[in-house]
């Protein structure tokens, strides 16, 4: 059992990280009062921007290309998220529909452009990030084997962002204002907070983080842009609710998804699990989410003004 756990742990973490950072982006957006179901599309554009930058730059800077790609992916995500911000903040559009348009546009436009560039619609990158063992920490008993061997640098980047996000949300004036905009925008407004700007910044953060999520998939386990992130953006959205709109909650929720999906993927080679039909293992994370949604429905911590446009005059 222990050896199996040690073997699958790096995969589970690799699968968790893009979900975690994307859900964290969704958290900023929703805590400010803007529902963002365009996370899936924002991941796709991030993966596209990153793949294009890395594929073009790798021959020139073999070492730095991946990190430049990460930057480009976050920028692409921000630019694309402005479409959602403009629609839902300036034009009071239905945020769910605007998000759906973002998802559709991202999938179609990126493959359209990729086909013009590469011919096939897919973009392969030469190499992603290497797996590294953290010196000293990796020799610790138990945790060293689980958390500090075979890790990606991007994993640590995302965990640092998570810690900073927690600090910003709960310990700074900006975080307080952001949460106020999501709970009671009119109260925030009368206290002198510029609701429009706070929401713009929050949606842009969700674009940057989802873009990062998309490119992390690319540089860790997929290695190729294909025009889809196979529903991970929606899964991140579910993790956000599962995690009750809290940074540590979504860490737990996304790790659950990562671990459950990895178990389903490797069940064939594990004697202990091979007797369970694969379909049950595959369906397991989704069914548990449905049950969790029911359980949490009584004490939902959803931001009260999420999804509602803010209008100055309406009080």
């Amino acid at each position: 059992m222990w050896t199996i756990l040690v073997q699958i742990f790096p995969y589970a973490i690799a699968f968790t990280i893009p979900l975690l950072i994307t859900a964290l982006g969704g958290l900023f957006s929703e805590r400010s009062g803007v529902v963002n179901i365009g996370l899936e599309g924002l991941m796709v554009v991030g993966s596209f921007g990153g793949a294009l930058a890395i594929a073009k730059l790798q021959p020139v800077f073999p070492n730095g290309a991946v990190w430049i790609g990460i930057g480009v992916a976050m920028l692409t995500g921000i630019v694309f998220s402005l479409l959602h911000a403009f629609a839902s903040i300036n034009l009071n559009a239905n945020q769910v529909i605007s998000g759906t348009a973002i998802n559709m546009l991202a999938g179609a436009l990126t493959v359209f452009l990729a086909r013009n560039i590469t011919g096939s619609g897919n973009i392969r990158i030469g190499s992603g990030l290497p797996r590294i063992d953290i010196p000293i920490l990796s020799s610790l008993p138990i945790v060293g084997k689980l958390f500090f061997t075979q890790t990606y640098a991007s994993t640590w980047l995302v965990l640092v962002i998570l810690a900073i996000s927690w600090y910003v949300l709960y310990k700074t004036a900006f975080g307080l204002r952001l949460r106020a905009c999501g709970e009671h925008p009119h109260a925030a407004d009368s206290a002198g907070v510029n609701v429009f700007w706070v929401r713009y910044i929050a949606v842009m953060l969700s674009g940057a983080f989802a873009g990062l999520g998309g490119v992390v998939i690319l540089i860790t386990y997929s290695g190729e842009f294909t025009g889809s992130v196979s529903g991970l953006g929606f899964l991140a959205l579910a993790a956000l609710i599962f995690g009750q709109w809290k940074p540590l909650g979504i860490l737990g929720a996304t790790f659950f998804f990562g671990f459950a999906s990895t178990i389903a993927n490797v069940s064939q080679v594990m004697p202990a699990l091979a007797s369970i039909p694969s379909v049950i293992l595959k369906v397991f994370p989704y069914v548990v989410t449905l049950i969790a949604l029911i359980v949490f429905s009584k004490s939902s911590q959803a931001p009260r003004a999420a999804g509602e446009p803010f209008e100055h005059g309406k009080r």
Partner: peptide, 22 residues
């Protein structure tokens, strides 16, 4: 012209329909 142009047009239409205020 890549066939994804059709999907792109549809998605753009939806974005404009969603922002009908504009």
């Amino acid at each position: 012209i890549p066939p994804e142009i059709a999907d792109t047009i549809i998605a753009t239409i939806i974005y404009f329909a969603a922002t009908s205020v504009l």
